[in-house]
Design a protein around this nucleic acid. Structure first.
Lengths: 166, 166
DNA sequence: CAATTTTGTTGCCCTGGTTAACAATCTGCG
DNA sequence: CGCAGATTGTTAACCAGGGCAACAAAATTG
């Protein structure tokens, strides 16, 4: 949750100039992402205690049942050690379990719990609603165009564009 | 303990499913921003030691000479206390200077130094080049469309008057 | 079998942001 | 004028999220 402060009454600046950044794609991308994150925090994080990152993890676990922490790390493009803390959080919340692998005693098979499935279903509805609200100023066509352009942007960056299911 | 459905345990997955997130704007926005940040890091941060955040600060200071740290905080939408560390960094690099305000002995007037102006000019060129590279897969028209759509998205957020006095 | 790799974990560090407190200073108002 | 209240910059403590390095246990390879 974030608090928007009031502008100081004595601010000598009515408007701030951003220079050449107004023409930079990365600048607008960052601001857009921050705005999205903020709205997510206002709606989902405060009510469900789930951040965008945790929600992403949950979805990947739910849609790839039994995957290992290392596989999850690869999927989320973070270090293995970072996954541990996240999985701990989700397990403490009772949303997922670390099942023992029948074939590999080192590895865990991550699975949703029944409460986890229910919680995710509920959160997912809130996220979809929030996502629609967020893009309320865009027509459906514009929204689709935006998503398409974004995908073309970041797919160039990831060397494995095939592991995103359409 | 628990029975999971008949889905196979994904131990070695070549493909990761993201579920309904593939239809969520926020998901693609986040990935796009991460990709942009990553390329920025590869090109500018490694060579100039400047992160996207620092670059943004520099541009705002350069384009609004003499602004106070509080005004900068409002412009960057972060807390006053966060500004201190950033300004310290930029000052230690010799890029900016804290001038005393002639009218208010509490406040600093932030200004670029001459080396700072030169450095920013150089960095700016690199950023613009990198930004073009990043959007190389988009036509100029598509790039313009993308920026326009992003602006309409986040401008709605900055308009929400969450900063009403209580 | 031994050597190497994989998996999960921990510890430490960094970045970047927050809140709470605080002194110095300005401002408004009686 | 004088004083209560804001504002400015600062520090300290804290937290989230991630990287890196080391490590033991287990699997794999030769």
């Amino acid at each position: 949750m974030r608090k928007h402060r009031g502008k100081p009454a004595n601010s000598d600046l009515a408007e701030v100039f951003h220079g050449p950044m107004t023409g930079e794609l990365g600048f607008h991308l960052r601001r857009g992402q921050i705005a999205a994150f903020r709205q997510f925090a206002r709606t989902i994080t405060t009510t469900e205690g789930i951040t965008p990152g945790l929600y992403g993890m949950l979805q990947v676990i739910a849609n790839n049942p039994g995957l290992s922490q290392s596989a999850l790390a690869v999927a989320m493009d973070v270090d293995r050690s970072s996954i541990v803390k996240v999985v701990n959080q989700l397990e403490e919340k009772g949303l997922i379990v670390r099942d023992a692998s029948p074939t590999d005693r080192r590895r865990y098979c991550l699975h949703m719990t029944t409460p986890g499935v229910q919680a995710l279903a509920r959160i997912e509805q809130a996220v979809l609603r929030q996502d629609q609200d967020f893009s309320a100023r865009l027509s459906d066509a514009e929204r689709g165009t935006l998503i398409d352009l974004l995908k073309r942007l970041y797919q160039q960056d990831s060397e494995t564009p095939a592991n995103v299911r359409e």
